[in-house]
Amino acid sequence: MYYSTVYLSPIGKITIACDGPGQNLAGLWIEGQKYHGDTIPEAMVGRDDMPIFDTAKKWLDRYFAGEKPVISELPLAPIGSGFRQEVWQILCKIPYGKVITYGGIAEKMAVKLKKENMSSRAAGGAVAHNPISIIIPCHRVVGSDGSLTGYSGGVQMKVKLLELEGADMSRFFVPAKGTAL
């Protein structure tokens, strides 16, 4: 059984999901986000009294207050293929306020998988399907040319999150056309 609750954040309504008995976070989606809840294998039951939800909301309170809570404070259980899990582990290592490119993730995955190279698009697809937004920081991934694209919460949300973290935005731009605009 999977449970969900709502967190009212400075950037809008966020749905948080957990696996019931394990008390692990299984999802976190910003309202209107692409792929909202798509990794949860069954209907989620609304329930506010789960201890993991209190822990996650306190983590988010600290994050939105400009503190730098660490990911390891939360028990995460994102649902996805082995490839996606590996990409999400890379995302978890991106420092607060810093970014990596889709190509950089592809290079890291090629090394992990002992391949000569890997497609940035394959890495990007895994990033896009990250079911625990903000906490697993997919908003910290940018195009190799500095474009702010590819965020399933929308490019303006990506900008807000990076600005909140104090990222140097001077080399980034919003593309005229592309994904997740």
Rank of each mutant, 00 (worst) to 15 (best):
T5A: 10
T5K: 07
V6K: 13
L8W: 11
P10D: 15
G12L: 09
I16P: 08
I16L: 14
L25V: 11
I30E: 06
E31S: 03
E31M: 01
G32W: 05
K34F: 01
G37R: 00
T39L: 01
A43Q: 07
G46M: 13
G46F: 15
R47F: 12
R47H: 10
R47S: 08
R47N: 10
D48F: 09
D49H: 04
I52R: 03
I52Q: 07
F53N: 00
D54W: 02
W59E: 13
R62F: 14
Y63D: 14
K68Y: 04
K68S: 05
P69V: 15
P69G: 12
P69Y: 15
I71K: 14
I71W: 13
S72A: 14
E73T: 12
E73A: 15
L74Q: 13
P75K: 15
L76W: 15
L76Q: 14
A77H: 14
P78T: 10
I79F: 06
G80C: 11
G82Q: 09
F83N: 05
Q85N: 05
W88R: 02
I90R: 03
C92I: 06
C92R: 10
G97Y: 01
G97T: 00
T101C: 01
Y102Q: 02
G103S: 13
G104R: 11
E107L: 12
M109H: 13
A110C: 10
K112L: 11
L113V: 02
K115I: 05
E116N: 09
N117L: 09
M118A: 09
R121K: 06
A122S: 08
A123F: 06
G124E: 00
V127Y: 00
S133P: 00
S133R: 07
I134G: 04
I135W: 04
P137C: 00
C138W: 07
R140Y: 01
G143V: 06
T149I: 05
T149P: 04
G150S: 11
Y151E: 07
Y151F: 10
S152W: 01
S152E: 07
G153D: 03
G153C: 02
G154Y: 04
K158C: 02
V159S: 03
K160Q: 07
E163P: 01
G166E: 06
M169K: 11
F172G: 08
T179G: 08
